[in-house]
């Protein structure tokens, strides 16, 4: 009877956007009379944080503080079309649409500022604090609140913009499967360290090391949430989860969380995560989608670590104690 330790690896890539494209998202943005920019979307936040990401993209493009940005979503009467939150597309599609809308609004903002300051719009810059100013000058500047008031009441201008992102749909060639499935690919490598109890068949995941190349971490804290929460889900898929424990038999299906097992707070491994950034040319500030892929690499990494620990090759998910024990029995010639 022993607790056997092992290490396993997996490296993966994952496509950003709906497979084969054809999945647009739009954004509208306008300034209130006092210089708050409202982004209007119909995009859904499932918890991944698209509202925060949309605000960050708009603030960066406008050159204004994020406090000047509000996000209004998701109402189909007021928000323009969004294909939906799936396929690791939200940040990429919506982010791009927001940047396009904000760039148009910024153009108007600078035009009005140029009139107010009596300078050329091309000579203006934003400093991220709310000021639009003449490059290299601290004298000639105007605050966004004053500028928005002037635009509305004096110049009769609407500081607004429209954005859409569409990757044109690709059609696979039926004979060969030739197709353009994705906008870009994110990458990951996981190393899993496990301990297998050869008496009970229980696998404990001790540590997970995750390296992700995600184009750009637009918000590193939220990117970390995706990586570490997704790794937990991957671990959970690997060791516990199914609605049909004796698939393809249909019986013994769990009905609730007492029967559908997942690792609890006492079962979680130490996680060490690292990001690399290789910006995608078509991504918002280079970002790729990572919402989905974070559950993927941990599963085979754990399978490979179990083999490393005890010599049992698990080829069916999930890796239940029963399957581990049957594997150990087979190794010992007891099958």
């Amino acid at each position: 009877m022993a607790k056997l330790r092992g290490r396993g690896y997996a490296s993966v890539n994952y496509p950003t956007g709906m497979n084969l494209g054809g999945d647009p998202s739009q954004a509208l943005i306008h300034s209130t009379t006092t210089g708050t920019f409202v982004i209007t979307l119909s995009s859904v936040d499932l918890g991944q944080g698209i509202k925060t990401i949309a605000a960050q993209c708009a603030a960066e493009t406008l050159g204004l503080p994020i406090e000047n940005v509000l996000v209004d979503t998701a109402d189909t009467d007021t928000g323009p079309h969004c294909m939906g939150t799936f396929a690791s597309r939200g940040t990429h599609r919506v982010g791009n649409a927001v940047i396009m809308a904000a760039a148009e609004a910024r153009g108007v903002m600078l035009e009005v500022a140029a009139e107010e300051l009596e300078v050329d719009a091309a000579d203006l810059e934003t400093d991220g604090t709310g000021l639009i100013k003449l490059k290299g000058s601290d004298e000639k500047s105007i605050h966004i609140t004053d500028l928005a008031l002037a635009a509305h009441f004096k110049h009769g201008r609407t500081i607004s913009g429209r954005g859409i992102f569409l990757k044109e749909p690709s059609t696979p060639v039926p004979e060969t499967g030739e197709m353009d499935p994705d906008s870009c690919q994110a990458h990951a490598c996981t190393a899993a360290f496990v301990e297998v109890d050869d008496e009970t068949g229980v696998v404990e995941v001790l540590e997970l090391y995750n390296v992700y190349e995600i184009g750009r971490a637009l918000n590193p804290a939220m990117a970390t949430q995706q990586v570490e929460g997704g790794a937990w889900m991957g671990l959970s898929h690997a060791l516990f989860e199914t609605t049909e424990p004796y698939y393809p038999r249909r019986d013994h299906g769990p009905r609730d969380f007492a029967e559908y097992l997942m690792p609890g707070p006492a079962d979680i491994p130490v996680q060490h995560s690292l990001f690399l950034e290789r910006p995608a040319g078509n991504g918002p500030y280079g970002a790729k989608g990572i919402g989905e892929m974070t559950a993927n690499a941990p599963i085979p990494a754990i399978a490979n670590a179990v083999f490393d620990a005890c010599g049992v090759r698990l080829t069916a998910m999930p890796f239940t104690p029963e399957r581990v024990l049957r594997g150990l029995d087979a190794l010992r010639g007891n099958a």
Partner: peptide, 22 residues
Amino acid sequence: EEDVAEAISGNVCRCTGYRPIM
């Protein structure tokens, strides 16, 4: 840490992996 894990062991979170909550 063990006390915290035990306290929240009846609460399911599907997003975070629990560690940020702990």
